[in-house]
């Protein structure tokens, strides 16, 4: 199972630079294993924006927003990853939407989900964005499932 990383423009390029992108990778590699991370290129401070920022998601220009996101979709598909980890709320919404729209089979997941999964403390109702491959793995208090 492979994972790729969408660097958030706001936190990385516009905020703390490659240093925080490396921090993000330290956490992700600790959680999923270094050998399971496949990078997009370019990345970190030089990444392509996914198209979820700047108000684009609410602008009404849906067709244009998806055309913008096609570059990101192609990058994700190129990695062959099963999961794209997003560190930003807007990225999560956009990467999820373009995956669905362009027929990708990857899942879009928040980093907090994977951290808790790796610690064995992810309950059955906290798995909305996990695929079938991880949905039933090491469920914390499965008896509390609402589904």
């Amino acid at each position: 199972m492979k994972f790729t990383i969408q660097d958030p423009c706001q936190i990385v390029r516009k905020g703390f630079g490659d240093e925080i992108a490396d921090d993000l990778r330290f956490v992700i590699k600790s959680v999923v294993g270094e050998e399971n991370v496949i990078e997009m290129t370019p990345n970190k401070s030089n990444n392509y924006c996914c198209g979820g920022g700047g108000g684009f998601l609410q602008s009404g220009f849906t067709e244009e927003r998806r055309a913008y996101g096609k570059k990101k979709f192609d990058q994700i598909i190129e990695t062959g990853a099963d999961y794209c980890i997003t560190g930003c709320h807007n990225c999560h919404a956009q990467v999820h939407d373009i995956g669905h729209h362009f027929g990708g089979t990857y899942q879009t997941v928040h980093i907090w989900t994977l951290i808790c999964l790796s610690l064995g403390i992810l309950g059955p109702n906290e798995r909305t964005y996990l695929g079938d491959d991880l949905k039933d793995v090491d469920v914390f208090h499965p008896e509390s499932s609402l589904y």
Binding site: C9, K14, N46, C49, G53, G54, F61, Y68
Partner: peptide, 16 residues
């Protein structure tokens, strides 16, 4: 131009 609403102001242009 409506393009100003399609640019996310991600600043990659400044970076490069």
């Amino acid at each position: 131009t409506p393009w100003v609403w399609m640019c996310t102001m991600c600043q990659r242009c400044i970076y490069v």
